[in-house]
Design a protein around this nucleic acid. Structure first.
Ligand code: ZN
Ligand code: ZN
Ligand code: ZN
Ligand code: ZN
Lengths: 152, 152
DNA sequence: ATAATATATGTTATGTTATAACATTGCAAT
DNA sequence: ATTGCAATGTTATAACATAACATATATTAT
């Protein structure tokens, strides 16, 4: 459950800029700010915490729709994920590389780990097929304690 | 994605009563009412819909804490699951038989299917072990369309 | 360049989901 | 009877999210 280095964070931001440029996606100032806030936090972050930070950065109060719209854009384009079990958002460090990924979330220190496991994806899609079910979205979130926190 | 018959629903309610009796769990009137409302709905149900129904049943307004407390009791004892991706609750039809189960949720007709798949559980727990992670709770929710709805 | 169009943001208000805090009740053990 | 405990009632508010409409900014067509 390693945390991200500064260079990884910068690379992540740069990658999003590139993807938006080449796909003609409007990465506006607000959307960029929201993405940066999310990846720099490096832990699951809540919408209203983002709202506070945006307000501070721009020296004027922003409002919930501003933040939620930016989040929607980022999620739609695979740059950010929502963790439904904790109403929080995290940056994706391998956008466009996956459809389903899953998350280990430490309840104590709030650190998280995004994982991709093809065999897990396979099992899930086999189950879906077996049930004649067409998947549009998968939520797989594992809450518990990371090594550090479970040893304390 | 078959729906439950009346007898299955009754059996489910009866089973909870038995489990509570033998485990000395206080299945109070309100808790029982909430459980019945959830299983009879037979689709994911929202807390405030339960609240309305409880108020009607008892001919007096109930309040959110009443419902949320009952839900907490039912979840703690494995009788009910929360679907985090849609802020809704469903009855469990095999309580005590599992730790992790997962859900196929149709976005259109709102029907759901609870599944248990040992190989899936195994994969998840292997990932957790590999990451030195101690699981306390797993959320696996698959949204999409059921056979009927994807054919329409 | 100008107008038309689409996209994004600002703003106000409100809807939805969930919990904190404290009072009251009912019941069982001493 | 008194204490203790578990559950519920009650009031208020916290936390999360969106509807609706106004305004601004960027793109495109003329
Ligand atoms: Zn991702
Ligand atoms: Zn931790
Ligand atoms: Zn279950
Ligand atoms: Zn359906």
């Amino acid at each position: 459950m390693k945390s991200k280095s500064t260079s990884e964070l910068k690379a992540s931001i740069h990658r999003v800029e590139e993807i938006c440029k080449s796909n003609k996606l409007g990465l506006t100032e607000i959307r960029k700010q929201v993405f940066e806030i999310i990846v720099k936090k490096n832990k699951p972050i809540k919408a209203y915490e983002i709202l506070d930070k945006i307000s501070n950065i721009n020296n004027k109060p922003s409002h919930p729709p501003t933040v939620y719209r930016a989040i929607d854009f980022l999620i739609e384009n695979g740059f950010v994920h929502k963790l439904n079990s904790i109403n929080s958002f995290v940056g994706c460090f391998h956008p466009k590389a996956h459809k389903e990924c899953y998350f280990l979330i430490c309840k104590k220190c709030n650190i998280y780990q995004e994982c991709c496991d093809d065999s897990l994806k396979d099992r899930i899609s086999k189950t879906a097929i077996h049930n004649n079910f067409v998947i549009s979205n998968t939520t797989l979130e594992i809450e518990g304690h990371c090594l550090d926190c479970s040893q304390k």
